[in-house]
Nucleic acid binder design. Structure first.
Lengths: 345, 345
DNA sequence: CTGTTAGCGCTTTCAC
DNA sequence: GTGAAAGCGCTAACAG
């Protein structure tokens, strides 16, 4: 059974003070007799006193809490971003409420409601791949609760966003494949609903255009990020009369899965087909061959987004600026012939 | 700027009702005119009305929220467990507050305070590797707030716990190494502070004893799970006059790191040294050679822990039972000679 | 420096 | 079926 929790009144009675004084002592208000404060603090400690945030929030009409909504927890990307968010939030004295939507639009809507009900002072959100309607997020705007998007951003809303330069990353990844002599470069793209899919696709296309490589429709496959399907698409690509000699994947999990399929079909990487991913996942350096990929400053994304949000909360600045972080192409063995490897050591 | 949020009073005024009636209509109280309820619900919808959980919790003295404290987010284990927790909690109508301690005892203490302040109805906790004092958690008990440990459990407190059979898993992992003919089996163990380290160590020791393999002190290295150190320990082991021919690691990240070191030193896996991990991490099937490991029912751990907690919260049952889930030995190439591989296909 | 008072938004008796 | 009033625990003027 839940027992009675000790309140300021309990402490006040015990010390024959008023609850206001106790409250002041506890919150570190300046005009309190050091003696008084001392005894209040001690007694509070002894009685397991714990400020009831609900009462505080109710009284202050602010919760000192920010909410985070991410689409999934299946790979390391979002957990890492959250680490960055927590770091900044903690420093500023904010709690973080983490919600995870499991890539479901409905869950995202529900999560938004929960955060709203918890009176968060602001929200950081990365959309699910299903999200096409944004009413549940516009509610925050209407209520004047700052919102910042990161990674999977919403194009329809004029709020700050933190992204990496997906276009540029994809461009350079593709350019790298071209520079090592690949001519038939396939692209396993993400769903069109996600802006990042479209930006990465554009980077890929423009790189081909720049180097006058023909764009072959059948080499571009857009899919819903359900990893199981990668095997199907890769088998298809590899069984084409002219299979690709290069492959750029929307993200690392996709690329890693693709590598497994390619190897199982007896193709050599990178000799027959060179592969590039996107994200620099934990596993990309572990597989054989290690994966060339576009690294994102993951933790920095979280920190930047959190800073932007806190800035809005505390200073009310709300220019809908887009903070674009840089990516870095990390070249590993999936695009590197052996000789170069020796040279670089 | 945060704007005025719509309250029951706003709705009441608009509809010329009392706030009590509005409240009753909103909460689904039986004695309300269906007509009235209908109009209240509609207006609430239209006005973006959102129940203020703080006010509700304050009035009800319960939050319908459970807290979760995990040591880290660096690998997939805890995020996956949380998925299981959320699944069960959601179904029962509870919110989940996720806190992450970054393996720091101090952060864990702070996290416990936050949860306390948020009036959680119960807590699920997995300890940091630093945690040796449990006062911050005993506070929950004193306040009558149910607590359930999982994975990294506390031996000092009489509360329900959810673990996997670490001893048995370690025993079978070691036995497997013995059965493929290994005689000098090293063990990279976790810190003694963690019960799971001790249990896995015991499983390892007992397996050796059962098969009359001498226990060699110099082959057993206990470390603090700081992955960077694995290289040092492995180099040491491999440079012994008689290097080990088998290796059992406390967890998969350790084993994966060990494999990289072993390969870089020119030893063959599994011919020179066979390796077994623990957890069946996402990456264990991706590395070369793929890692034999002890799989844990990760999501099930979360679900079981959540169910145990909800049971305590709602029915007050609080037998300090220990729920032990089974592990499964997954044999992969890090302990398998090539021939067998062909046979099994 | 400290006490008094009102009120945050909601639920919940107790009347009618 | 609905309203009035009290109270959850805390903060924040306003007096003194």
């Amino acid at each position: 059974m839940k027992k009675h929790q000790t309140t300021v009144i309990d402490i006040a009675k015990e010390l024959k003070l008023s609850k206001s004084t106790v409250s002041r002592a506890l919150t570190g208000h300046p005009h309190v007799n050091p003696q008084t404060r001392q005894s209040v603090l001690e007694l509070a400690q002894k009685m397991d006193y714990q400020r009831n945030v609900f009462a505080v929030s109710l009284a202050n009409n602010r919760s000192n809490t920010i909410g985070v909504i991410v689409p999934e927890f299946h790979f390391m990307f979002f957990p890492q971003v959250i680490l960055g968010i927590q770091e900044v939030a903690k420093e500023a004295g904010y709690h973080v409420l983490i919600m995870q939507s499991g890539e479901s639009y409905e869950a995202e809507v529900a999560n938004a409601k929960v955060l709203l009900a918890h009176q968060v002072d602001g929200v950081l959100v990365s959309l699910t791949k299903e999200t096409l309607n944004f009413d549940h997020l516009k509610v925050f705007q209407r209520k004047g609760i700052p919102i910042v998007f990161f990674n999977r951003v919403c194009d329809d809303m004029e709020v700050p966003k933190v992204v990496v330069d997906d276009y540029d990353g994809a461009f350079r990844a593709t350019e790298h494949l071209i520079k090592i002599g690949r001519k038939r470069i396939a692209h396993l793209a993400g769903p069109h609903s996600l802006l990042i899919s479209r930006k990465r696709l554009n980077g890929y296309l423009d790189a081909l255009r720049k180097y006058d490589i023909p764009i072959v429709e059948e080499l571009i496959i857009s899919y819903d990020l359900t990893l199981e399907k990668v095997a199907i698409y890769m088998s298809h690509l590899l069984s084409l009369p002219q299979p690709p000699d290069g492959l750029f994947c929307i993200n690392d999990p996709t690329a890693i899965k693709a590598i497994q399929v390619i190897k199982s079909k007896g193709f050599a990487i990178p000799q027959d087909i060179a592969v590039v991913g996107f994200s620099n996942d934990y596993a990309s350096d572990l597989i054989e061959p290690s994966l060339t990929t576009v690294a994102q400053p993951v933790r920095e994304i979280g920190k930047t987004a959190a800073r932007l949000l806190l800035d809005q909360i505390e200073n009310g600045s709300d220019k809908p600026l887009i903070r674009q972080l840089n990516t870095e192409l990390i070249i590993r063995r999936s695009t590197q012939v052996e000789e170069k490897l020796w040279l670089s050591k």
